[in-house]
């Protein structure tokens, strides 16, 4: 028993996560292992019940060492023996913020994106806002196919013309109107209607006090820790 506890259990693999030696089930992907060890990295297109898709790119991590490092999406990368993973290196954070900036320029009306941008401390958006209502994360498509087994919606077109639709853009017979696609959509929940709702970036959320939900009746910002929509108590009229 004492001998066994010294050796890795079963088929576990050992790798380095932010400098610490950790073990993980080889069937996991990197994101699962990272989350298992309590490290919080943002992701929009990943859901436990669905196959990983790797399109939002927010879960990028840096693997490798020395000059031979590269960025990979952790939700698509398997855990392997001897990996060296860094989840919050400078390169990762810079990349993640750029991805977030692009996403939020596409879809500034989403609460989930705004909250995530605030957590990433995104301070400006240098791109022209598209005011789209879809980030093409494919969660609804996978939800419909894998969990609801309806296969009523899917992607059509390609490149900049790609969009999510029903067959032939018509009301689909396959659709049971279960609403699972809307439930899982990260983009179609309206953002906080706080003091600066018309801006691309719900700026001010980076500051922490006071709780905006109690100050504004129609505010929907319930971030933990509370990232208020106002800069400080003196801004509250």
């Amino acid at each position: 028993m004492s001998q066994n506890s010294q050796t890795p259990r079963g088929e576990m693999v050992t790798f380095m996560l932010n400098g610490a030696e950790v073990q993980a089930d080889p069937n996991w992907n990197l994101l699962e292992a990272i989350q298992f060890y309590g490290i919080d990295i943002p992701t929009l297109c990943y859901d436990e019940g669905l196959t990983p898709y790797g399109v939002c790119r927010l879960c990028v991590v840096e693997i490798g060492s020395g000059d031979r490092t590269k960025l990979v999406t952790s939700c698509m990368h398997p855990v392997r023996e001897g990996l060296e993973v860094r989840t919050h290196s400078n390169r990762v954070i810079k990349t993640r913020k750029m991805i977030m900036e692009l996403l939020i320029a596409r879809c500034p009306s989403s609460k989930k994106l705004q909250d995530m941008a605030a957590l990433l401390e995104l301070k400006e958006v240098r791109f022209k806002p598209l005011n789209d209502d879809c980030i093409l994360c494919g969660l609804c498509v996978r939800m419909c196919e894998e969990q609801m087994v309806a296969k009523a919606i899917g992607f059509a077109g390609r490149g900049t013309d790609r969009y999510i639709t029903t067959p032939f853009d018509m009301t689909s017979e396959e659709c049971r109107r279960c609403g699972a696609c809307m439930y899982i959509c990260p983009a179609c929940e309206l953002r906080c209607q706080g003091p600066q709702a018309e801006t691309v970036l719900c700026s001010g959320c980076i500051n922490t006090e006071p709780v905006c939900a109690s100050e504004y009746g129609d505010a929907m910002c319930f971030m933990v820790p509370c990232l208020s929509c106002v800069k400080g108590p003196e801004d509250v009229k």
Binding site: E145, K151, A152, I153, G154, F155, A156, G157, R158, T165, T166, P167, F168, S172, E174
Partner: peptide
């Protein structure tokens, strides 16, 4: 196969 898959390929 799902109709949406055929539609997706045809529009792609």
């Amino acid at each position: 196969i799902p109709r949406v898959q055929v539609f997706g390929v045809a529009t792609f």
